[in-house]
Amino acid sequence: MRRRELVAGVASAAAIGGAALFAAGATPTGIGGSDDAGDPTASDEGTETVEPMTIDTIEAPGSRDGEVAVPASDRPTFVDFFGTWCPPCVEQMPALGDANDRVGDRVLFVSVTTEAVGRSVTEAEIAEWWTEHDGGWLVGADPTAELAARANVSGYPTAAVIDAAGRLRWSESGIHTADELVAEIEAVL
């Protein structure tokens, strides 16, 4: 099975992700959580490939009703994982808009909700939230959290950068500044 074969590779991405989080102090409640569950920690940074999948995109400002392959095959990809229920995701929006203005033409720049769009929330509700919070770029849905699993989302929002070769280079939860987002994106350009 495809998923099973990927597991060994992805596990080391988690180890990297975890280390990055602790280094950035992004897990304030991680009391006693410094050990880990016997994670295989064969860290091999930057070599974890994110298998491309099709994400349905939503008709909304800056976005259209359609599909997009994530990650892109011809350029780096930036994904903002969010939920319309998530206040910090609202706070993250202005910096995302700024980052998109600065580097959005050089990468696939997309926000993806992990909500069960089509089951517990409608596309129209996502579009409404998007409009209200001044979204102006591609927005899509990951209703079974499959992409979120591949990018190892560890909170909301999570920012993820995948290079043009499809390798997960950065995945970190928390609110980031536009400068931080742009720096992580530019690192793979």
């Binding site: 975890g18 897990t27 880990d36 569950a37 994670d39 190892n152």
Partner: peptide, 17 residues
């Protein structure tokens, strides 16, 4: 079978597998 004490960051596909 497994305890994941850093459960919020542990690799999702690994838990699923």
């Amino acid at each position: 079978e497994r305890a994941y004490p850093s459960g919020s960051t542990v690799d999702i596909e690994r838990i699923v597998a």
